[in-house]
């Protein structure tokens, strides 16, 4: 099977890779590029653990083909912190203990980042519906919602 050459931007850096036509972007990110922060919980777009922002859209990377990344911009959890300075969402997830096992956390952080970019001051209900594509089995979502509310407040400078 011939590889397809793809040139893309990941977390602000240029990246080039070869992939098979049937290879998902999730497989490429994890297995070819070593971005293991992008998690696979289902491979069918139901759990959100593999969430990334593709250009300006929140997507499940398991539902995107690697070849589709050509010329696009990809943001993953690995690009959220600036050096040793955590993104406010990351900081608030820690402070609120919004993770127990943590496997869903990268997807939640990316989904929350996308949500706050579009709606900087969401209500609790807007947060709950905004994050409804991400499954967490440990927390019951309570502390996740509070962390996002707190991070939104910090990001607004309130």
């Amino acid at each position: 099977m011939a590889g397809i050459a793809v040139s893309t931007t990941i977390n602000g850096d240029q990246a080039e890779f070869l992939c098979h036509p049937d290879e998902t972007l999730l497989e490429v990110l994890r297995e070819r590029l070593g971005l293991m922060g992008v998690k696979e919980g289902c491979g069918t777009g139901d759990c959100g653990a593999c969430s990334i922002i593709l250009d300006d859209r929140l997507v499940c990377s398991c539902l995107v083909l690697g070849a589709e990344a050509e010329g696009r911009r990809i943001a993953t959890v690995e690009g959220m912190a600036q050096g040793d300075k955590l993104h406010p969402l990351q900081q608030k997830f820690l402070e609120h203990a919004a993770l127990q096992c943590g496997i869903c956390t990268p997807g939640f952080l990316i989904a929350a980042k996308d949500l706050l970019a579009k709606n900087p001051d969401p209500t609790e209900e807007e947060i709950r519906f905004g994050l409804a594509g991400n499954l967490c089995r440990c927390t019951g979502y309570d502390k996740i919602v509070r962390a996002v509310q707190d991070a939104a407040s910090v990001m607004r400078g309130a």
């Binding site: 069918t44 139901d46 759990c47 519906f129 994050l131 991400n134 019951g140 309570d142 919602v145």
Partner: peptide, 13 residues
Amino acid sequence: GFLDYRIPVCSDL
């Protein structure tokens, strides 16, 4: 699968 088994999501609780 998670789609058809469906555990609670954030907006359910």
